[in-house]
Design a binder for these strands. Structure first.
Lengths: 346, 346
DNA sequence: CAGGGCACTGACAACGTTGTCAATCGTCCT
DNA sequence: AGGACGATTGACAACGTTGTCAGTGCCCTG
């Protein structure tokens, strides 16, 4: 399980000692110059600087961290970097980190709990001061307990942690799905299907609850045949749609539970004659250019990233109040696909 | 310029010494157990393991790196993580890194050369063994020279390095643009406009050359009024399109130089009565669901990421042959927008 | 029963950096 | 003139880990 390439590609890398010898000063003086500490004469500074650039010296953060206990950096664990939602989230976290003078080290778990764990431990081993985590499905975060006890901070995004307490930044999943469903009801639909990710996915389950809330509030009886919880793979989505069509009273409208499902549905229905009204959970880049443009309940990935980063830095600044949970609101963006009325029977 | 939160949040973190004392063994024995080295009795291993998990001990990679010279990790510097093209690229690099037992630390330059430099130096300070870099526009990589001399490996992706020699993985920009333009010519177009990113962008300039190649090969005189090189902002793209329309003989077809430009064009033309034929450079997720579906010259971000990572690992394995440049082919995907003939005059 | 080999174990130094503390020198005050 | 003070400087230890090397005790062979 260890690394494959194990060569000593290291040519002598100059150290402070080399600089000190070359500049004919003490080790500590070089350290002072490198770190901009006061108490060094201009002449000495110039001489040391000169030697540094001549030798191409670069301070070694490993030694620095060993000595100081830590170096300014945080870790960021994503579930999937190719999903635009997470891409925007990571962008926001990195911006905040950079503004705070922190290096953000990012890694991807690829939805694999074991990979998430390995990545988290590797970042901990590098003694990051904090961790922002988008948990992989089924992940267990007990492994973080010793780190948290040792003073590391952690913030979870999009899904709550399992097995440890920590700040969490979530979308108002239930409220958003409720709004999406209510929007379709307001436009006259009574047979509304819900198509989302597997029920084990935290967000998917909550969104289903929001869907049920809206139906109940409108006095529409829930029909389990109108609910499909599937991994958003093309075949699975196509199958679910076919099953809906075969029903005695097929749905006239559809709430999709995440952007991958939405896109899969659009693709499956691309050449369908009739198309149900659609409201998607989570916005996506070209929703406005679809025909018809797709109505969505938008999440705020940038806001989530920012909130998570701020929560993390608040902890790093010493805040040790109990773990908080932040919930960001969603926003319904009506574009057309969700405002078509149901076909009038007869 | 230093970090803001500077608290000592560190509670005593157990070290090998603590484990050794608690387990009543020597320091080196703990090290052996932690690293799975042979020569420790089963009983001792069990005892040490027990203490390790009881104390929540975690090996410190900083000390390890200081001692060993390095720890398995590579760095990855992106220009923009929210661009799907780069998102897929980073995914591929991370996959290969993981397969090689390496941790990939990713950061974003946000198209700022200074940020790229800072990030690169920070990763070097952490003594990553290699760096995969998507250069920010205008970046200068002289700063890497000492690192490369010290045995670090670097591979550049999508754009070549400036000021240092290193392996480079590029798209066949010129050939791709040539193919895109030739496709439109083959469908009868003679007035073909080219709309791409600023001419300072490496890829944009090459793609323009490919466009010119195709026109020349078909004996069509080049018309500078049909070439617009702009940052792909909505207003700039709209303005360029308006300028095209106002020409005496407006273009009947359009080659767009990157996916952001393509999308901006589609959005600007969304409610236009007549739409020129369009071929876009670089595929994008929902191109097939546009009306009409968008014909593109697809790049291979995953292939590029993989090629870059493999090149890097080859270097890490000791290959010190001269720097290579790898060029990946493009693939024209005809979907409809590029196959409409020009309107027959009269 | 001596000697050699083997399995297991631990003392120690060193990696590059920085905080602590002491030394040196020149200047200024009384 | 004597002492004090500030500015500048460097020697040294320690951070946590691992490679080297030197044991220790045991079993096996002759």
């Amino acid at each position: 399980m260890d690394a494959a390439p194990r060569q000593t590609r290291d040519v002598a890398r100059p150290t402070m000692k080399d600089v000190a010898r070359e500049a004919a000063v003490g080790l500590k003086t070089v350290s002072r110059v490198v770190n901009g500490e006061p108490g060094v004469s201009e002449a000495t500074i110039a001489r040391v600087r000169d030697v540094i650039s001549r030798l191409g010296y670069r301070r070694d953060d490993a030694a620095r961290e060993l000595r100081n206990g830590q170096v300014a950096s945080i870790g960021l664990i994503l579930e999937d970097s190719t999903d635009p939602f997470y891409a925007h989230l990571v962008g926001a976290v990195q911006d905040v980190a950079q503004a705070n003078g922190m290096l953000a080290l990012t890694g991807t778990s690829d939805e694999d709990p074991a990979a998430e764990r390995d990545l988290g431990l590797a970042l901990c081993a590098r003694r990051v001061q904090g961790l922002v985590i988008v948990p992989a499905p089924g992940a267990d975060h007990h492994y973080l307990a010793p780190e948290l006890a040792a003073g590391m901070a952690a913030v979870f995004v999009d899904r709550p942690p399992v097995g440890v307490r920590a700040d969490t930044v979530l979308t108002d999943n239930r409220g958003g799905a409720r709004a999406a469903t209510a929007h379709l009801i307001a436009h006259g639909h009574r047979r509304i299907a819900f198509l989302a990710d597997a029920p084990g996915i935290f967000t998917a389950a909550l969104r289903r609850e929001g869907y049920r809330d809206a139906l109940a509030a409108a006095g529409i009886p829930a029909d389990e045949a109108l609910i499909a919880m599937e991994t958003p793979l093309p075949e699975a989505v196509r199958a679910a749609l076919r099953a809906f069509e075969r029903l005695d009273r097929p749905p006239t409208a559809l709430v999709t539970g995440n952007n991958r499902t939405t896109v899969a549905v659009l693709r499956a229905l691309a050449q369908a004659a009739v198309r149900p009204a659609i409201v998607g959970f989570d916005d996506f880049e070209l929703a406005d250019l679809m025909t018809p443009p797709v109505t969505v309940v938008a999440q705020d990935p940038v806001g989530m990233g920012r909130a998570a980063a701020h929560a993390l830095f608040r902890r790093l600044a010493g805040d040790d109040s109990p773990a908080r949970s932040i919930e960001l609101p969603t926003r319904l963006i009506a574009r057309g696909s969700g405002e078509t009325p149901p076909p009038t029977p007869g």
